[in-house]
Design a binder for these strands. Structure first.
Length: 490
RNA sequence: CGGGGUGUAGCGUAGCCCGGUAUCGCGCCACAUUUGGGAUGUGGAGGCCGCAGGUUCGAAUCCUGCCACCCCGACCA
């Protein structure tokens, strides 16, 4: 176990917080519910952004930017949307401060805004207000826009990365001529997220649809990817919404069809956030610190020299310089930790805490033998290998780590996904062996709510690949045609 | 907003009942010895004891008010 980090077993949620702080990912800010993302944490987010952005471009999207502030009146236009977000909006009411008689800074009561402005909790309203001006004809469609932005939702209970009042995300907003095309887009982007989660985050996810209760405010259908964390709780890792014509109607966005008829535009929106950093931490890390999948690690290889004298360090440095060039030629990022202020053991612990996938330790003995000590973070194993073709050895090792982290997470999820047909057993499992529970549900919001009230478990999703199977609702015994996934969730 | 708790050095804390300007550890700085898994020794710096009043010769300690944060619940990517 690492210094200053409580073990996962003892207190999972404290373990998570310790890790975020100790690994230098983020810290608390002076403002409640907001966090400071530190350079190391931000560099992970940047890697995610770069990959996702590439995927969005690949699927035909382009980036744009819409304002942080949204006129309050925009919000009231889509009824369920207001209802969903009203309780957590920060509102800007004034535009000036001044000094009062005592010299204190106060809000200038004279500087009240005519129309209050909402700090965006999401951008559908301002975007659809804008799209109205962009769309007249089917020839203007589709519009495939994404924006990278911050948003604010005044959360009551916050946790670093998982739920903060302000967070960073991307939100895609597309406009289409037909419902089919919009649904296709919704599903396409869900698959982009699933692909990203599985092949980059090494995080297996369930693709599914939300129940009406859990839908995005203003959506006709919400698709999601759900992941299982190491404590058996579920985490929604990304969502993609089919918005139907709701926003087009609210903002009066009509277009001329090919048949020269007037119709409302079909919409989608989809997003993932810095919550993914939290998902990354919670799914792979251990008591020694972070475990970052190689494809997202800001530094993939750390090289630690072991030396007694400057001459030894020089000899090692010369070798490391060559190695570094070879690794960089293969697109592998590497850092040489030649600080003389820390001893090797301290460096090992530090880089383990930060989750660097591969460590190369090299001392005089290795230099004589033509070897290095190669350690992998995920399994904490190490072996002595030849310097011959080391860059290639490392390249393969990184691929192997990426795959085995994924396999491990997948095995964990499979072990902790259980089919249940008895309500008492359902409740027992939630308490004693938390994970996904696959159970029949009668399809009503009432039963869903009842189960939630009684067990604190929610329907995470209706899996897309679920097989049709006759059964009886776990709570009411009414007939059901397929299983849905329940879990306690973040 | 309800229930519980905590504010003392960068971090974690002792002291508070029973008033006398603050303890210990980590970290930090200097020097020396060290370096194949978190080094050791010696010396040193660092505090408006959350804020504002009050009681008192004297308040981290007692009293009053305020503020902030954390944990548990209702809301959520």
């Amino acid at each position: 176990m690492s210094k200053g980090i409580i073990s996962k077993e003892e207190d999972y949620s404290q373990w998570y917080t310790d890790l975020v702080i100790k690994a230098d990912l983020a810290e608390y800010s002076p403002v409640r519910g907001c966090m400071i993302i530190k350079p190391y944490g931000y560099s992970i987010w940047e890697k995610m952004q770069a990959v996702l952005d590439g995927m969005f471009k690949e699927t035909g999207h382009t980036n744009a930017y819409f304002p942080l502030l949204i006129p309050k009146s925009f919000f009231s236009k889509e009824a369920s949307h207001v209802e969903g977000f009203a309780k957590e909006c920060a509102v800007v009411t004034h535009y000036r401060l001044k000094n009062d008689e005592d010299g204190n800074i106060i809000v200038d009561p004279e500087a009240e805004l005519e129309e209050e402005l909402i700090i965006r909790p999401t951008s559908e309203t301002i975007i659809w207000n804008t799209y109205k001006g962009w769309i007249q004809s089917y020839r203007d469609l589709p519009i495939l826009v994404n924006q990278w932005a911050n948003v604010m939702r005044w959360e009551m209970r916050t946790r670093l990365f998982l739920r903060t009042s302000e967070f960073l995300w991307q939100e895609g907003h597309t406009a289409h001529a037909t419902a089919e095309e919009a649904v296709e887009e919704t599903e396409r982007m869900l698959e982009v997220y699933a692909d990203f989660a599985e092949n980059w985050l090494a995080l297996p996810v369930i693709r599914g649809r939300k129940t009406p209760n859990e839908r995005f405010a203003g959506a006709l259908d919400t698709y999601c990817i759900e992941a299982l964390m190491q404590d058996g709780k579920a985490l929604q890792a990304g969502t993609s919404h089919f918005l139907g014509q709701n926003f087009a109607k609210a903002f009066d966005v009509k277009f001329n069809t090919k048949e020269n008829k007037l119709d409302y535009v079909w919409a989608t929106s989809w997003g993932v956030s810095t919550r993914l950093v939290g998902a990354l931490i919670m799914s792979h890390s251990d008591d020694a610190g972070l475990v970052i999948p190689p494809k997202l690690a800001p530094i993939q290889v750390i090289v630690v020299p072991i030396f007694k004298h400057d001459e030894e360090l020089e000899a090692i440095s010369a070798y490391v310089k060559t190695l570094t060039q070879e690794l960089k030629a293969k697109g592998i990022s590497v850092k040489f930790d030649n600080r003389d202020t820390h001893r090797p053991g301290a460096k090992f612990a530090e880089w383990e805490l930060k989750g660097i996938p591969v460590r190369v330790a090299i001392g005089s003995r290795d230099m004589q033998n033509g070897t290095v000590e190669l350690a992998r973070r995920d399994t904490k194993t190490k072996e002595t290998v030849s310097q011959q073709d080391l860059a290639t050895t490392i390249e393969r090792l990184l691929e192997d780590i990426q795959q085995s982290i994924y396999n491990k997470s997948l095995a964990f999820r499979e072990e902790n996904t259980r089919e249940v047909d008895d309500y008492e057993e359902f409740k027992r499992l939630l308490d004693e062996e938390p994970g996904f529970l696959s159970a029949h549900w009668d399809g009503t919001a009432e039963t869903e709510q009842l189960i939630k009230d009684e067990t604190r478990a929610t329907i995470r999703c209706i899996p897309l690949n679920a097989k049709q199977e006759e059964g009886r609702c776990i709570r009411t015994g009414k007939p059901s045609s397929q299983r849905v996934l329940f879990a306690r969730a973040y």
